[in-house]
Structures are given as structure tokens and as C-alpha cells.
Amino acid sequence: MKQDIILAGVGGQGILSIAYVIDNAALKQGLSFKQAEVHGMAQRGGAVQSHLRLSNDPIFSDLIPKGGADMILSVEPLESIRYFDYLAPDGIVVTSSSPFVNIPNYPELDEVLSKVQSVSKNIIVDSAKLAQEAGFARAQNMVILGAASAHLILQEENLKKFIRELFQARGDKVVDINIRAFDLGRDSAAG
């Protein structure tokens, strides 16, 4: 059993929080994992990605080979396309329909979404709306994680355990909002 995931988004969207939850859930399930991320310059409103590899067997490369990713999990639709060359032929894309526009040449949203839909396995959820509904606009990352959850080799209860752990310091209310965001994402993907 193995799963190679490209996590993507724009700096500030909480990509590394998703990674934290998945890493810890993997450790809890006794899986090996490696998670390569980018620090420094790329944080500032730029494209951010992380290579996340889960497996029962030893993992060698910290990077996923191009053409080898089982999933692209992106909090932003254009950012999911940026890494299409990493996606395996039968890989799945999970992303948002909400663009993050901080560049002058952002392509037409319709064109972006239809490109995502050109991948036979794709899940697109309105993470901005669902995060609002959960109670916090910045919880989009947990919406997307929820939307992907049914396709992860990790159990939902383990993911939730570490969502709780991640946000515990900020109080029960923040924890509840993020759990709700996860649930809304999961349900929206299933529906």
C-alpha cells in the first residue's frame, strides 16, 4: 500500500497544516512517510507545494517522480494544474473552485476548471463557500482535506484526531470550525 500526494496552494493557504495532519495520521497508522516542502522565499504569496509520500514499505526519494503521483490535493485550482506533470495516468485531482487571484495574468476561471475536469478522476468543491459555512474563511484547507479524505489511505478518525491537536491551542471553537470544515468538504465531495 502506498500513496504519493502533491499538496499545493498559495503561500498562506495552510498547505503545511494539511501536511501536519496527514503526516501524523500516517505515523499513527504505522506507515512510513516522507514529506518534502519548500521554505523561505516561496512563502510570500507565491506558489507552494509539498511532496507527501505514504507507504508500508521504505520510501527512498523525498520527491515524487513526475508521472507518479496518485493524488494532487490543491487548495487552489490553478495551483493544481501547475503540477499535472506529476500526476499518474490514473491519479486523482482534488481541488477548489475558488481561485486565489494575486497575479495579473490569472487565466479565465472557466478554462482553469475545465482543465481540472479534463482529468478523468477529479473532485472540485467550493472551498471558499464551505469554509464560510463552517465559520472561518481561512479553513479552506480543511475543506479540501475533507474532500480528499475518502480517497486517502488514512482513516478519518486519525485525520480528525490531528486536526484537533493542530488547533487545540487556539481553543475549542477553532477546533470545531475546522472539524466542521472537514466534514463539509467530505460531504460535498460525496454528494
Binding site: 507565491g46 506558489a47 513526475k66 506533470d85 478554462e111
Partner: peptide, 28 residues
């Protein structure tokens, strides 16, 4: 992995082509 694969003379994995898409850079 793919650069080393090429150096080893092994066929590359199949990759999606997105050259037809107007990809925009997002610099820091």
C-alpha cells in the same frame, strides 16, 4: 527521480502535457 532516471537510461513515466494551457507563474 526523473532526472536520475534519464541518466540511467530508463524510459520516463508517462506525464500529462499541459503545454496547451496558459499557465501563469506565481512568483513570491
Amino acid at each position: 527521480p526523473e532526472v536520475v532516471r534519464q541518466g540511467l537510461g530508463i524510459e520516463p513515466l508517462e506525464q500529462k502535457d499541459i503545454s496547451d494551457f496558459p499557465m501563469a507563474g506565481r512568483p513570491p
